[in-house]
Structure formats: structure tokens, C-alpha cells
């Protein structure tokens, strides 16, 4: 935040009037539209303030961009079109939801793959560990279960 402020001061200067109408009172035809505006702004990143969304930023530029988004919504543009408009000017940095491109395959598909790999190794490991278990006869197993039951009472785990 400190750095963000310094940067904002450096880039925007000090004599600039703080327009900062974060909470502009835009007029909408319906609640759904208002909600759509809010959600769209929340997914767009302010450029000067480092890590704040357009919905929350008090930077001057963020105010201008909110105005743009509002106007384009009034013109009937879709969320996708509005996002594209901003991406064409500022790059993918403006969207908090990264696009799915070859460059982000690792990002989007990495975690599911990690999950599947984890599952695979867990199952393999368990298979390997269970070998001996099957060799217990019924009596031994019952005895073991009793012992464990006692043990179980002592502790949470």
C-alpha cells in the first residue's frame, strides 16, 4: 500500500484534484443491471493502484474507466466486449480472471492435474501398503480392531 501510494503520487502528481468518486451513484434501469455493473468492475483491475479493483479504487483513472464501462453498458455492450475493449488498451493485466490461452494452460489446468496426480499416487501408495493387511486372518484382525479401539479413546487422532 505504501508503495502503491508512492507510485500513485509519482505518476499522478500531487496537485491533481482527487476526483475519487469510488462510490459514484450511477443510475440503472434495473437492479440486475446494477449488480452486473458491480460484478464486472470487481473483476477489472485498476492499473495505477497495484492491487485494487475498479470497483474499489479511488484513483482518478479508475473513475474514468468506470465511466467508460458504464457508458458501454448503456450502449448495450456485453461484459465480454467491454473487457475486450479494456484489454486491447491495457493488456491482460486489467482482468482479474486470466484468459485461457496457451500461456495460461498451466495456470488453469495445473491444479486439477495436481489433484488427479495426487489421487493417483495416493491410490498407488495405499495399494502398496495394504499388501500385508490381507494376510491377517480373521482372528488377528478382530484382535487388532479391539486394540485400536482402546487406543482410539485416548486421543483425537
Amino acid at each position: 500500500m505504501i508503495r502503491a501510494l508512492l507510485l500513485a503520487l509519482m505518476l499522478l502528481g500531487t496537485a491533481m484534484p482527487v476526483a475519487a468518486l469510488t462510490m459514484d451513484s450511477y443510475e440503472f434501469e434495473s437492479e440486475a443491471e446494477r449488480e452486473r455493473f458491480r460484478e464486472l468492475l470487481a473483476e477489472l483491475r485498476c492499473l495505477v493502484c497495484q492491487n485494487e479493483s475498479l470497483a474499489d479504487s479511488q484513483a482518478d483513472l479508475a473513475g474514468d474507466l468506470r465511466e467508460q464501462v458504464y457508458e458501454q453498458m448503456q450502449q448495450g455492450k456485453t461484459n465480454g466486449e467491454i473487457t475486450e475493449y479494456l484489454v486491447a488498451r491495457y493488456g491482460d493485466f486489467v482482468r482479474y480472471r486470466p484468459p485461457v490461452t496457451p500461456g495460461t494452460y498451466l495456470l488453469w489446468f495445473g491444479p486439477p492435474v495436481i489433484l488427479l496426480l495426487g489421487l493417483f499416487f495416493a491410490v498407488r501408495l495405499l495399494r502398496g501398503r495394504t499388501g500385508q493387511e490381507q494376510q491377517l486372518n480373521e482372528a488377528q484382525r478382530r484382535r487388532a480392531a479391539e486394540l485400536l479401539d482402546e487406543d482410539d479413546r485416548g486421543d483425537g487422532h
Partner: peptide, 14 residues
């Protein structure tokens, strides 16, 4: 004056 061309040019800080 209004910064509209600035937005078109992708200006985010001067």
C-alpha cells in the same frame, strides 16, 4: 481534456 484519447492509447499514468 477528458482523458478519452488517453484511455484509447492505454495511458495509465503520466
Amino acid at each position: 481534456r477528458d482523458g478519452d484519447v488517453g484511455i484509447d492509447w492505454g495511458v495509465y499514468g503520466v
